[in-house]
Structures are given as structure tokens and as C-alpha cells.
Simulated assay, not measured.
Amino acid sequence: MPTKDRDRFSTATRLRVLGEQTAARVYRSQTKRQARRSRLTGRAALLALVLCSMIVALAYPMRQYVSQRAEIADVQKQQDQARERVEQLRDLKARWQDDAYAEQQIRKRLHYVRPGETGYTVAGQGTAQQSRTDLRAARRPWYANVWDGVDRSDASDQ
């Protein structure tokens, strides 16, 4: 047998060839796996980029939507309060249309009396602090009381 044929059938040669074939297969499968991994990684990166772009693109409109909904709720609340106030004012207007109610309020607020009636004003109603303040105000000149009133109203605004 020639050496070439004998080498071909020798165990060492067969093991070497088998090892080379196995190494080639492993290398090819690793290369395919790496190629597949890199493709999946690229796809994943593209998907992540698209998702991030969509989130960024939708973030501002969503924020605007939420803030506008809150604004609408506030305006509706104000509108409900205004309607309630209008109803109160209509009731008050209807009461003032009644002559008996108007007369009652005039007598109470302006201390009017009918001809032949005697009007009384009770002094000392209120707290002791008010009485002392009223007495001090009565002893001072009228212009000092006016300026004190202006100062008090100015201080209450702050």
C-alpha cells in the first residue's frame, strides 16, 4: 500500500481530519450565531430607537392633553359656581320685588319708621372693645377718624 493510502486510513490521520472538520463546523456555527446575534441586536436597537422616538413624540401632546383636561375641569367648576351665584341673585331679586321684604329691609338697615311710630336705637350693642373704640372716635375730630379708617382699610389689604 502506498503511504498516501496508508496515511489516509491511519487513526491519527482520521482523528486529525475529524478534528479539523469538527473545528470547521464549530467555527461556522459560531459565525452564524454571531451573525444572528448581531442581526438581533441591530433589530433590538432599531426597535428601541423607534419606541423612544414614539415616546418622545407623544410626551408633549399627552402633557398638553392632561393640562387642558385639568383646565377644562377648573373652568367647569367656575361655571357651576357662577350658575349657583346667578340663582342666588335671582332669588334675592325676586325677594326685593316683594314690597313687604323691601320695607322690612329698609326699616332694618336704614332705621326708618312709619309716621306715628317711635324709633329706638339701643346703645352698647356689640363688644366692650367696640364701645371703647366708638367712644374714643367720638372724642376725636372727624378728619382723624377718616384717616384712621383709610389706614385700617389699607392695612387689611396687605
Rank of each mutant, 00 (worst) to 15 (best):
R95V: 07
A45M: 09
Q125M: 14
A144D: 12
L92E: 14
L89Q: 13
T127Q: 03
R33S: 06
S29C: 03
Y60G: 00
A102D: 06
G124Y: 06
D148C: 05
D151L: 05
R107I: 12
L51C: 10
D5T: 09
G19E: 09
R39S: 12
E103V: 08
K32N: 13
R14M: 08
M62T: 13
T31G: 02
E117L: 03
Q81P: 00
H111F: 04
P61Q: 12
T127H: 02
G149V: 09
L49F: 08
Q79V: 15
D148M: 06
T3Y: 11
L15V: 01
W142L: 15
A24G: 03
E103N: 11
G19A: 09
A70Q: 14
F9C: 02
S131Q: 13
R33I: 08
K4C: 03
Y60E: 01
P141C: 03
Y112R: 07
R43L: 15
A138F: 04
T11M: 01
A44F: 00
Y143Q: 01
L51A: 15
D7H: 10
R139G: 06
R6V: 09
R39N: 05
K108R: 14
S10K: 04
V113T: 12
D74Q: 06
G119P: 00
L18A: 14
V113C: 07
V86N: 05
E87A: 14
R95E: 15
D134T: 10
A59N: 04
A102S: 07
E103W: 01
A138T: 02
A82D: 07
Q129P: 00
A155H: 11
A82F: 06
H111S: 04
Y65N: 05
Q125L: 15
D5A: 11
P2H: 08
D154Y: 10
A100S: 13
Q129A: 15
I72Q: 09
Y27A: 14
T121W: 01
Q88E: 15
D151N: 09
T41Y: 06
L46C: 03
Y101D: 03
R39Y: 10
S156Y: 05
V66E: 07
R33H: 01
R85E: 11
W142A: 15
Q130D: 13
V75Y: 08
A70D: 11
C52M: 05
L92R: 09
T127V: 02
L40E: 13
I55F: 12
S131E: 12
R109C: 00
R69G: 01
A12V: 04
R14T: 02
T133L: 14
L92C: 02
K4Y: 07
Q81L: 12
A57Y: 07
P141W: 02
T118L: 13
Q130M: 09
L46V: 06
D91M: 11
A123T: 15
W147D: 08
A35R: 13
A100M: 06
A138N: 03
D80Q: 15
E103M: 08
R8W: 11
A82P: 00
V50F: 02
Q88T: 10
A137H: 06
R140H: 02
G126A: 12
A102L: 09
D5I: 13
M1Y: 03
Q78P: 00
W96I: 11
K77A: 15
R95A: 13
D91I: 09
A44K: 10
G126I: 11
Q130H: 08
G42W: 05
